[in-house]
């Protein structure tokens, strides 16, 4: 037999491990799923998306949850039954032109989800900084002692949420817009602000399949390679939100029968986005569709060799 030269890379860096109760995110010490160079202690986590307001939530997705999507706690519990590792609780309804979910109401939802599912939770707001900061403050304080992820923070809007995370032991979700340098800059800002190494998760924007996935795939790979090569400011778990797949016209369109069944198509659209995210370095995947989430989990288990 021909002897194949060793292709194992020698990396000096390792991704930080963040502990959420019984779950751990991160810890990679080689490129994704390569058992000849990566210890592969665990597979990427699957976070099921729950929203407090269905106004902008696609109907084709809502139909898949048997009516349980009307109550966030029930919905989160359904995610647990499906096999999700984490709940991504979003509050688009906190915006004044929507339901107007108050910080107190958000606290009650998040606490109930934690009690009912026992799963770790990622909490994000409606995208309006003032409202999101108040929401994070209330939820972060109420959840002291149970580590959650709070977001999103951006380059010019990170101090309030970061302070809440530092004083209550939570992790920050650091968002950057498809750019390795911005991603690093965010982590430097947070570190300088006093956020510890077990308190940062990074979201470098996972563009969906056909919507710039090529950029995300390469930015993720470059981030992971730089982290493994020793750049400490990039050695944090990576969160990839794959739900953007549901915004792609070609994924959900029902106008053209030659494109095939839309439910199957959009499931694949999100699952392939998730596969690309995993192969390029994702540690936590945010998923919308139950079918796609299930595919992502099964493939992650198989690729890792760990369930």
């Amino acid at each position: 037999m021909a002897e194949i030269p060793s292709v194992k890379e020698k990396y000096t860096g390792k991704i930080e491990e963040i502990v959420f109760g019984n779950c751990v995110a991160g810890g990679a010490d080689g490129m994704p799923f390569l058992s000849f160079e990566n210890t592969l202690k665990r597979r990427p986590m699957i976070a099921g998306e729950v929203v407090d307001d269905l106004t902008d939530y696609p109907e084709i997705a809502a139909e898949m949850f048997d009516g349980r999507q009307k109550d966030p706690v029930e919905w989160a519990n359904m995610w647990k039954e499906i096999g999700a590792d984490m709940i991504c609780m979003r509050f688009p309804g906190a915006a004044p032109d929507k339901k107007g979910t108050t910080p107190d109401a958000a606290v009650s939802i998040v606490k109930s989800i934690a009690e009912k599912t026992g799963l770790p939770i990622m909490v994000t707001g409606c995208g309006i900084p003032d409202i999101d900061n108040k929401l994070a403050e209330a939820v972060g304080g109420a959840m002291k002692g149970t580590k959650i992820i709070l977001g999103k923070t951006e380059e010019h809007e990170y101090k309030k949420i970061s302070a809440v995370c530092v004083s209550n032991g939570h992790a920050v979700l650091a968002f950057s817009n498809l750019d390795i340098n911005l991603a690093k800059q965010m982590n430097i800002l947070l570190t300088d602000f006093g956020v510890g190494r077990d308190g940062i998760t990074m979201d470098p924007l996972m563009a969906a399949l056909g919507m710039g996935l090529d950029y995300s795939y390469s930015v993720n790979e470059r981030i992971r390679l730089a982290a493994l090569s020793g750049d400490r400011m990039l050695q944090v778990p990576m969160v990839c939100d794959c739900t953007g797949a549901w915004d792609v016209g070609d994924a959900v369109s029902t106008d053209d029968p030659s494109l095939g069944d839309a439910k199957h198509r959009v499931a694949w659209w999100e699952a392939m986005t998730a596969l690309a995210a995993m192969l390029s370095g994702a540690d936590i995947l945010v998923m919308r569709g139950p079918g796609a989430a299930d595919m992502a989990r099964v493939y992650a288990e198989e690729l890792t060799g760990v369930s």
Partner: peptide, 20 residues
Amino acid sequence: LKNYEALPLMTLRQNIYTDP
């Protein structure tokens, strides 16, 4: 290969093989 499988798969191929 079904059409609902082919379209996402071929879109993935287009993305991966695009000149960065």
